[in-house]
Each structure stands twice: as structure tokens, then as C-alpha cells.
């Protein structure tokens, strides 16, 4: 456990000294704030769901920037030799890094509380909808982070990892449209795998455990795949 915490702490330090993280944070909040103000002024509605729509879509583009260096940079600068020859095993290393990315996600979520607080000045918030939307956004963001972590294990080049993560996330986002255009009957089944589409129930205030299980399972799958990729690198 101490090894895992050490890795998490180191990763968090890396996040806060990296200009890429600050740029990604700034980009995220500038765009989300723009949509927030445009939607709020345009519709004059106190509706928290509009915030989460834009946050989810912007996350598809921002999270690859936040995860691309997690393993790529270790592979590039040779510090993977330090980690992999230490008493920490691969799962601890991967989970340590994942935990750091979740902490960053939690920071995004915390900072985004500013939007509902502003809305609350102009009307009454639907609190169950808000909390479930936040829960939904967090588990979806956690899944996106696991995808980014996985992509980061694929190459020692950060840009390649970032583009791979973006590609996978875009695919998981638009999968429902692909389903519709390729084979209409398969749409209900394919929709189940849509990363953002799966949020719709939670954003309506409907709690369905299967939605949570979907995100948690997908995160676990990508973490497992990350460990497998790293294991394979050592056999090759």
C-alpha cells in the first residue's frame, strides 16, 4: 500500500508541475464556462443537466492530455526500469497512477461546483438530479482516465498515446451513431456501450445500478489491459 501511495503522490506532483495540466485545465473550464453562460443566458433555465452535457463532451478532448504522459513518459525517459525493478508490482504501479488521475478528476468535479452555485442564485436546483449527474460524470470521467492510462502504455511517445486515447474515447462516444448507420436493429445493443449515452438516465435523476457497473467494469477492463500491455513488453 505504501508503494501505491508513493506512486500516486509522485504522479500528483508531476501533474502540478506540468504546464500541460494547467493548459488542459484552463481549456476545459474556458470552454465549459462559455457553454454554461451561453446556455444559461439563452434558455434562462436553472437546469444543471446542461452543464454536464458540455463537461462530458469537453472531457473527451481534455482527458487524453491529462493522461498521455502517465506511462509514456516513464517509458521515454527510462524511469520504467526504476519502477519495474522496485518491489512494487505492475498492478500497484498502474493503480497508483490511476489513483492520481482520479484525484485530478475529483479536482475538476470540485471546481465545477461553481456552476450549480451560480445557478442556485437564480432559482432552485433539483438536487437529486445534480448529485446523480455528478456521480455519473465522475464514473464516466474515471472510465475515460482508464482509457487514457491504457493508451499511455502503448507508446513511449506522449503524442501518440494522446491521439490513441482520443481515438478510443471518440469511438466510445460516437458508437451509438455508428450503430444506427450500420445496422438499425443493433442500435439498442450498441447504445449500451456508448460512454456518454449511458449517462442519460443518471442525468434525468434515475439511478440504475447497471449504469454504474458499466462504467466500473469498463474502467477495470482498461486497467487490466494496461497491466497486460506492460507485462507483454517485459516478455518481448
Amino acid at each position: 500500500m505504501s508503494r501505491l501511495i508513493a506512486i500516486t503522490r509522485k504522479e500528483l506532483h508531476m501533474y502540478f508541475v506540468s504546464p500541460v495540466s494547467y493548459a488542459a485545465f484552463a481549456f476545459f473550464f474556458v470552454i465549459v464556462s462559455y457553454f454554461f453562460s451561453a446556455n444559461f443566458i439563452g434558455s434562462q433555465l436553472v437546469d444543471v443537466r446542461l452543464i454536464f452535457d458540455s463537461m462530458s463532451i469537453i472531457s473527451v478532448f481534455v482527458i487524453p492530455f491529462l493522461t498521455m504522459r502517465l506511462l509514456s513518459e516513464e517509458l521515454r525517459q527510462g524511469t520504467d526500469e526504476l519502477l519495474f525493478t522496485s518491489p512494487a508490482n505492475l498492478t500497484e504501479i498502474v493503480l497508483g497512477k490511476y489513483l492520481a488521475s482520479l484525484t485530478v478528476l475529483l479536482l475538476i468535479v470540485t471546481l465545477s461546483f461553481a456552476y450549480p452555485l451560480i445557478l442556485a442564485q437564480y432559482g432552485t436546483l433539483e438536487l437529486p438530479v445534480m448529485w446523480l449527474s455528478y456521480l455519473g460524470y465522475f464514473v464516466m470521467g474515471a472510465t475515460m482516465m482508464s482509457v487514457g492510462l491504457f493508451a499511455s502504455s502503448l507508446s513511449s511517445n506522449q503524442m501518440v498515446s494522446g491521439i490513441a486515447a482520443l481515438g478510443i474515447l471518440l469511438l466510445l462516444w460516437i458508437i451509438e451513431w455508428i450503430g444506427t448507420s450500420v445496422y438499425v436493429d443493433a442500435q439498442p445493443l450498441i447504445e449500451q456501450f456508448s460512454l456518454i449515452g449511458r449517462l442519460s438516465d443518471l442525468q434525468r435523476g434515475l439511478f440504475d445500478l447497471s449504469d454504474l457497473i458499466f462504467y466500473i467494469s469498463l474502467s477495470a477492463l482498461f486497467i487490466f489491459l494496461t497491466v497486460q500491455v506492460l507485462t507483454r513488453k517485459r516478455w518481448k
Binding site: 509522485k10 506532483h13 508531476m14 508541475v17 506540468s18 527510462g78 524511469t79 526500469e81 526504476l82
Partner: peptide, 12 residues
């Protein structure tokens, strides 16, 4: 173990 390239993190 000291690998060929010193395994250090420039940011720390």
C-alpha cells in the same frame, strides 16, 4: 540497479 540512463525525474 543503475540502468544505462540514470532513472531520474527531472521535475522533482
Amino acid at each position: 540497479y543503475l540502468p544505462q540512463t540514470p532513472p531520474v525525474y527531472p521535475e522533482l
